[in-house]
Design a binder for these strands. Structure first.
Ligand SMILES: [Mn+2]
Ligand SMILES: [Mn+2]
Ligand SMILES: [Zn+2]
Ligand SMILES: [Zn+2]
Lengths: 153, 153
DNA sequence: GTCTCCATGCTACTCAGTTGCAACTGCCAC
DNA sequence: GTGGCAGTTGCAACTGAGTAGCATGGAGAC
């Protein structure tokens, strides 16, 4: 009889391994473990969250966590969002069906002002048209909804 | 004949002074000077920008700049936006006609990916409706357009 | 099994923002 | 005007996220 529950990310290790193999890049323990953490998270996850999740079974140096998270972004596997607390948080990209260069479809984010958690809103953004001053060319639009999440309501 | 141009913020000192008097709070040199800097800026301004602008004629300790900028936000005179470089930038609120508690009307921002500058888009945001999961309640929406500004095009 | 190159771990660093505290000053009462 | 006090400033020390340099280690090619 064990005293502590197994961490949830363990069930995602094989999925993570497959996704990393698919990139053609090197398969390493930290990459698998960090990606499994993101796969196990419903919400945006900081480097510190990841390091904390892994400390018991797959301890990884904090600098490596930073580097792996950045690598996952560059591979098109995850994306990062800046929070009001100056911390980057990371999430798996929604539909990896397309090629990695296709970037993940624009999607909005939701931040709960009560608990501070951030979620992806997986629906594609309804086309917003903002009037820009003369000479300004838009590339893409970030949309962040602030409010109160289901758990905090 | 003078060698250096007078800094632009000097012409805004009296406007700044009036705005601070209007709050009913204490009128101090750093508050007037920092607010004058924001009044003189078309674009989002970091605490370091402000400190740099003031160094010659109204040198202010950097911690005071931080505190005054935060105070201006609390007074409803300016607002702050987080950049991708983890730096807060500040701007005067557009229409101060209403009471300070009315918060400044929602407006979108534009960040130039080339020069890194951020501008307010003063038109009110066209009503966006995003589908939220059950139980999520929205308060407000932040909208950030990424692109290339007129000067960089 | 060996070799090579890339990834990891570790230490030391940068940089934005914060905290604690003593000294100062705006402002009100008199 | 002068005094007193609370709010504000300046300074120094600190925090916490993220980065850089470099020696060691392991993944994958052969
Ligand atoms: Mn997202
Ligand atoms: Mn703005
Ligand atoms: Zn919440
Ligand atoms: Zn530009």
């Amino acid at each position: 009889m064990q005293l502590f529950m197994k961490p949830a990310y363990l069930t995602h290790l094989s999925t993570a391994e497959a996704a990393i193999r698919a990139t053609g890049e090197r398969l390493t323990q930290p990459r698998v473990a960090v990606l499994a953490c993101l796969l196990a998270s419903e919400r945006a996850t900081s480097h510190l969250d990841v390091a904390g999740m892994l400390v018991d079974h797959h301890a990884v140096d904090r600098v490596t966590v930073y580097r792996v998270l950045e690598w996952l972004v560059n591979q098109g596997i995850s994306h990062r969002i800046a929070g009001d607390d100056r911390v980057w948080r990371f999430m798996i990209n929604p539909q990896q069906t397309s090629a990695k260069s296709a970037a993940h479809g624009h999607h909005a984010h939701f931040t709960c002002e009560t608990c501070g958690q951030t979620f992806c809103l997986n629906k594609t953004i309804p086309k917003v048209d903002v009037k820009l001053p003369k000479g300004f060319r838009p590339f893409e639009i970030d949309l962040l909804v602030r409010g109160c999440c289901a758990a905090c309501s």
